[in-house]
Design a protein around this nucleic acid. Sequence first.
DNA 1: TTGCTCCTCACGTCACGTGAGGTGGC
DNA 2: TTGCTCCTCACGTCACGTGAGGTGGC
Lengths: 142, 142
Amino acid sequence: MSARPLRIGDVAARVGVTPRTIRYYEERGLLAGGDRAKGSHRMYEEADVVRLQELIRLRDLLGLSLEELVELAEAEEARAALRDRWESDPNDEERRAIVEAAIPLVERQLALVSLRRQKLDEFAAELQDKLGRLHARRDELG
Amino acid sequence: MSARPLRIGDVAARVGVTPRTIRYYEERGLLAGGDRAKGSHRMYEEADVVRLQELIRLRDLLGLSLEELVELAEAEEARAALRDRWESDPNDEERRAIVEAAIPLVERQLALVSLRRQKLDEFAAELQDKLGRLHARRDELG
DNA sequence: TTGCTCCTCACGTCACGTGAGGTGGC
DNA sequence: TTGCTCCTCACGTCACGTGAGGTGGC
């Protein structure tokens, strides 16, 4: 895994946002921009692209505000911190704790997705209804 | 159909927005605030509630901007204008034209809903995948 | 008459968009 | 060396939020 670095424009293009959005998210604490000499270029790796993708999807598909994203991100952060310990210290009890902490987070996201789907389905049903009535009327006039 | 008038606060509460949002939409031309003495209360009827509900759903569930809503609304407007003529002039050829103009509008909305559903399903699938892997790992450590 | 909701400015905020002016790496 | 992308302010914008101060209807 060579992990050659990506520039902010590449990351932005791949995720479908602008560099400005990435800088703003960093400013809000959603993305690590961490240790960097003032004025020097931000550098990213594949893991950052995946992470940003997820945030953007939570924003677009579920309509979460950045404040809500920060909450979720902090939970993920805690998980990531645990993951680091995972690498260094392969204690089975700790591994279990890490996995068990991760599960409810994903379940929560799934619950939000289900709720959205339900609302979309209701909307789709109403539109189908409307369309059916229109077709019926057209046929009456046919 | 008595059509007793509703006040802005009632409409807002029923649709789940604030009065400010309604005033702003009126300002942007999405809602009729029409003929009203300066300073007098805005009055609405059931049809306005239905209309606003639809706009809010298009905004929340599909993530449309107000500018995009205006486009859609203008199309609906044209339809509403035709509907008025419908009431007064029951000419069968015109009726057909009205119905046939309405159908593609609803179909367009349905297409947008389908697209959203697809994206949500993809997201749900990825989350299920993630959850499955977490469960498997937990069981391995069990 | 007393509340409550309404009204119109008008400034504040969130999530970025958009130049302005300048530095840095293939 | 020439572009291109990057950098940091900093002001603009969209979709409202939030008082400020005042009028109007059960």
